[in-house]
């Protein structure tokens, strides 16, 4: 990550108060990461489609550098209740992955898969939570398999863990390793449409890839696009 970098016209691309190297990533490299996300989320969509027995569309992946506090707003605000499944990846690259859904979408998904009536007031049954845990597990697992094939890296994921809590609490924990290097992360957001937009919430499951800062160069080297991005 040395050498001159192309200036980007992307708005909100850097915040002046910090000198994070992540904020100086070129548009070209952000596009490469978008492709990585498309490949991972595409495979996850195929798996979910098989699981649900219906079409699952991948939405356009979004990739951008963002200060931590804005990331939490992006996910709906610090106090917004979200369902999340967390996995830590080690191996050729390291980082954290999160499968995230709104509470409403999670309830719709459980209804679809079990026929049970999970209502907002009742929260989730044990079976509902176990279904969501498994969906998150499959989503992240498929994503990692595709990522590993694409990059040619061995990747070993931790045991997936589920939490249903405030977005701020979940995201800040997931960003703690990145926090050692700065106050900004590259958000790699791969989204799957769960029910053709008919669900409440935003109708999507999101798979966030949050690589440790040292891993970006490894990704670019594996894909033969290391350097300053002036390709």
């Amino acid at each position: 990550m040395t050498g001159e970098r192309r200036e980007s016209g992307n708005e909100g691309f850097r915040s002046p108060e910090t000198g994070d190297a992540l904020q100086r990533m070129s548009d070209f490299h952000l596009d490469v990461l978008r492709e990585v996300s498309n490949i991972g989320a595409g495979n996850a969509a195929t798996s979910l489609s098989t699981l649900l027995g219906k079409t699952v569309d991948m939405r356009v992946s979004r990739v951008f550098p963002m200060p931590f506090n804005e990331i939490i707003e992006y996910v709906g605000g610090a106090e917004r209740m979200i369902l999340s499944v967390f996995v830590r990846i080690e191996g050729g690259i390291s980082g954290n992955m999160l499968f995230v859904m709104s509470r409403e979408d999670a309830q719709s998904l459980v209804r679809h898969m079990t026929g049970a009536t999970e209502t907002e007031e009742q929260g989730f049954s044990e079976m509902g939570l176990s279904v969501l845990h498994e969906v998150g597990n499959i989503m992240i697992g498929s994503y990692i398999t595709a990522l590993s094939d694409f990059l040619g890296f061995e990747l070993s994921p931790s045991v997936p863990s589920l939490a249903m809590d405030m977005a701020g609490a979940i995201l800040a924990f997931s960003l703690s390793e990145i926090g050692r290097s700065g106050d900004t992360a590259i958000v790699i957001d791969g989204a799957l449409s769960l029910d053709g937009g008919a669900l409440s919430g935003d109708g999507a499951g999101h798979i966030f890839l949050l690589p440790d800062p040292e891993s970006f160069n490894k990704i670019f080297q594996a894909l033969g696009v290391a350097g300053n991005g002036d390709h």
Partner: peptide, 10 residues
């Protein structure tokens, strides 16, 4: 008053 929202491991 001063507040912070959604403390997890923080």
């Amino acid at each position: 008053s001063v507040s912070t929202l959604g403390l997890g491991s923080c």
